[in-house]
Each structure stands twice: as structure tokens, then as C-alpha cells.
Amino acid sequence: MRVNFTVNGRPQEADDVWEGESLLYVLRERLGLPGSKNACEQGECGSCTVRLDGVPVCSCLVAAGQVEGRDVVTVEGLADHARQRAVRDRCKTVSHGAPAASGPSLDEARVRQAEGSDSQAGEGGELAPIQQAFIDAGAVQCGFCTPGLLVAADEMLEHNPTPTDADIREALSGNLCRCTGYEKIMDAVRLAAARQGEAV
């Protein structure tokens, strides 16, 4: 079968998909996006976590056919996703909380232009804040769990910008890590939250 869906903002078409293939398989083996990881392929480890219409899911448990016409964000698109969110948030501030229009508003376009010359963009501006925080806090060892944790942590910070430790643990409890003992992952999420707070 053929599956049409949006991945990281771009329309994608996967051909000759067998009905038994998972979204994870299609991303990794047909679309050349191996960032989502295959640690268990049974929904236990969270290493394949992606956003499906905004909701974090284990892509190994989603049949490829289920994503027809839907919107997927993977770790490869996380930096863009975070950047667009930042633009939206700033636009909300700029336009004093007016509801966001469906297309980019004039204000939004202005902020986007400003992004290009932003000093942050020059210094690792390619990364989402949560990605940079994982590097800075030492939360990456082998890194196999990292993509799933990043997608899950970014999603949590999106709706809970000031999480308690208990909130963080609860939000990330579906993501296994075997290297770090989670302490540096806690540090990274706290760091991202703190930096996000400073930036507002």
C-alpha cells in the first residue's frame, strides 16, 4: 500500500508498504529517518517515541497505515519543532495573547527573520533547547535512548514549563535508559526548563 503523511513538516509518500509494517519501520527503513530507535519494538522502552498529531507515541506500536494523512514529528525534526514553537510563543507575546492565525502572521514572520541573526542561532542554534541541555548535562552516554527521551521531555516541557522532579519522573517513566542511571537526564530536563524560563 501507499501511505501519505507529514513528517517534520514535509509531506512524505511511502510506497510498497506491507500492511504489517510499523510507523517505526517506515520512518527508519523507507524514509531514511533512523533517529527513532528500535530498542524493543514492543512498546516497552520508549526509544522510538515520536509525536503523532502532537501526542507522544511509541512508533513501533503504530501501524504505518494508521498515520495516513496525519502529522509526525521525529527527533530529526525536534529542533525545527522547538524553533517554531518559540516563534509562536513569541508571537503570542508580541501580539499580546491574540489567538494565533493559521498562517504565519506578520509578527511571526518578523520574529522568524530575527531568528536568523539571533546570536543563539550561531551558537548551536540548530538544536532544540532540550537537545542542548542533554549534551551539557552529560545525559548522553550510548545515546540509544536519547531520541525518545528528547521527544518525550520536549513534549512535557511544552505543556508543563516548570515541572517538579516528580513530574519529570512521571513524564519520562515510559523511556528506559540503561547507561546513565537517569540522574543526568533529570539534570538535563531541569536545565532545559530553567533556560526556557530565563528566555521568557
Binding site: P34, G35, V75, I135, V140, F144, T146
Partner: peptide, 23 residues
């Protein structure tokens, strides 16, 4: 010094090629 991993950026962007990612 606590210098950062040279493979850190590749690992957080999903670009680091693990053995199962090869094609």
C-alpha cells in the same frame, strides 16, 4: 575538565549512525 562528548550533537539529533541504522 568536563569537556562534552564529541558525538553528543549527532546523538541528540538522531544523526549518529548505530549499527542498526546502516543501509
Amino acid at each position: 575538565e568536563s569537556t562534552l562528548r564529541p558525538d553528543g550533537t549527532l546523538k541528540v539529533t538522531g544523526e549518529f549512525a548505530y549499527a542498526s541504522d546502516l543501509w
